[in-house]
Design a binder for these strands. Structure first.
Lengths: 213, 213, 213, 213
DNA sequence: GATGAATGAGCCTTCATTCAT
DNA sequence: GATGAATGAAGGCTCATTCAT
């Protein structure tokens, strides 16, 4: 976890360039979550980071660029997370799929702040070239990889689900419970979210998956 | 669906109050879809409706109120749509679930514009009291109803899925493919979306559902 | 007293032109008093008169004209009031001065509404040509007349006050207590106002004036 | 009196915070005098100060706050002025009253601009909570102090005027000549204003006051 | 690096005015 | 006469961006 900005102590006089940028990006994520895309202002970001207004622009040039780099950061963080999970898994597709799903619900990543920030970017994806430009490649890579695993489930274990649809179902179940956290009046917790997806996965591949409990 | 907004002909000097309000609400949905929540301006709405921006405020008072009434309109439209679908279905839970799912992909409702508008509201749900205040009741009603149908699937047909999770899985699969339309670079069409959900449904209840083709 | 507008009963379908104009002018005075010059809107005037927005402009053409005619009305009302008081007085200057002062505190004229309306016009007198154009003549006539009476006090009763200053002192004492009603947190009543001026008058002309009690 | 506002030279990029605020407040007073309360706009204030309109809001937040701080400034200036005058006077009530009156006609304070600004605030006092909230205390302090001095005139010099009325008469004569400056077509000068009030004072306390000449 | 004053574009909103019915 | 829809100018305010220190 990157070191989260904390406004109270006077900001250290000199910080490494990268630490400052990270601090501002984390403040951007938090502000996005707190105020939504439409009310995220540079002033609010600066305040949350405990920095002056001008310094944010000194480091990022423009607001659009700050948003772009924040999205890059989230996107890269997400990719690194599932890739690390795959590294630790063996080669069986059921292990790898399980690892991916669990990774998506890791408490480091799956926080209300980050979910809200993702949703903010998604909602602007249609009208802002930003999202497609920055995330299309990562998203596609993730989908292709998941489709490959689903294809292996068919080949190795005798299932008969179209891999593209199966992969898509896994993906949308994950996105769906993320969305639930943002829109439900009384959201369920991380554990229930994971088990909901595992239940769905167990429906797709009954001999290999199922809820924890 | 009314298709009123059309800027070219000089707007009739007087229209019935309700027709004008509807026209403006449709223009709001379209603008929300085109520009996203953060860049939806009253000027843009007025332009799209072919009206002066002052008239929008004459009819709705404030921008916030316009947004609230737009959300009410979408929410009511959605509720009316699935309730009408249930009216036409018989009493068997599998028929009713299928009717709900198909209703959610009706071409009148499931348009890119409306999906984008919904997403815009979802993304602000955390920071704006608007969404919870207006939609929580409708959302909860929908969930309860779906949970009831899933419970009947267990009772009548011998399935063994926890109804709350099963209902949630149906919901998030639907929301998930909606979300896909907004975020994928090359989204799939309505038919494929429906069949994806039916495939997922077939995994949950194998003896009663499956893709069309 | 002109017939005060009363919003509750549905406005009589057909009224004489002059009655409508008067009704609107009275509503203007009341609105001026309630909201101040800067927040007096045609909508507020119409609402107070129980009429539609457009009707006000039908009768007065523009807002500026409505204000001008309202000022004319107040000015004429004021002039008629003191002239009527003089008609009833005998020819002695002390009687005539007393009549003038009492006229200025007549309960019909000296209402919080009218005082506030006058003050509103005074405060805009510098920047709006309106006041000078409409009231300079009346004001000058009043001053000349008062100066003549003060000159008679000297000639007939042996006082030795410069008539211009004496007249001015009478005028500003009256205006001053009017102003007090608008600015004091706990203003005094009409009777105390009158006796304050009579006390001042008694200081100027000790053998002829003094407070009532 | 600072005489800062001057649009011609390009404004220094940076000024001390307080100097800028003062400059803007003086421009507000001038604009209030020139245009009246109802047409005083931030743009007009900024133009008169030779600054951008955004800067006015940068320093004062809102127009309402700018008005409030301007009134505070005028009110404090007025209080400081009469208190300084009292400091220089000896303890005899006639000296102190004379000092107060002369202070009210000091050329620094008693300018057309300031008089017009005061009148603008007075005219909105009824409908805006501003005036009462900011000035009631100062006004009451002034009245009490003046009443005390009038009581001393009775006690020490054998006069027999009710102190409250006497003090009120002094106050309204001063306010009255201020009002005259705003409403008369051909106002008299400062000297004549002072002598008018001194004449009135001489009528109240014949053995101690009278016009200068 | 860092700060905060300064600018100006663009937004929401108010409101006088016009006009069809 | 009377109504209320419709327009557009103008105002207050927010905020990204620039820039002197």
């Amino acid at each position: 976890m990157p070191q989260i900005a904390s406004a109270n102590p006077p900001p250290p006089r000199t910080q490494s360039r990268d630490a400052r940028r990270l601090q501002i990006i984390e403040a951007t994520i938090a502000t996005l979550a707190e105020k939504g895309f439409s009310r995220m202002t540079l002033t609010a970001v600066a305040q949350r980071a405990g920095l002056s207004h001008g310094l944010v622009l000194f480091h990022f040039g423009t607001k659009d660029n700050l948003l772009a780099e924040t999205l890059d950061y989230l996107s890269e963080e997400y990719r690194a997370n599932w890739q690390a999970a795959l590294q630790l898994a063996d080669n069986r597709p059921e292990t790898r799929i399980a690892a991916l799903v669990r990774a998506d619900f890791s408490p480091d990543l799956c926080t209300p702040e980050r979910q809200a920030a993702w949703l903010a970017f998604w909602s602007e994806a249609q009208s802002l070239p930003l999202y497609q430009a920055r995330c299309a490649a990562n998203d596609a890579e993730y989908s292709r990889m998941l489709e490959g695993l689903c294809a292996q489930m068919n080949a190795l274990h005798g299932y008969d689900l179209p891999p593209v649809r199966a992969a898509r179902l896994v993906r949308i179940m994950i996105d769906g419970v993320w969305l639930d956290q943002m829109t439900l009046q009384a959201p369920y917790d991380l554990d229930e979210a994971l088990n909901t997806v595992l239940t769905g996965l167990g429906a797709l591949y009954p001999r290999h998956f199922g809820p924890n409990a």
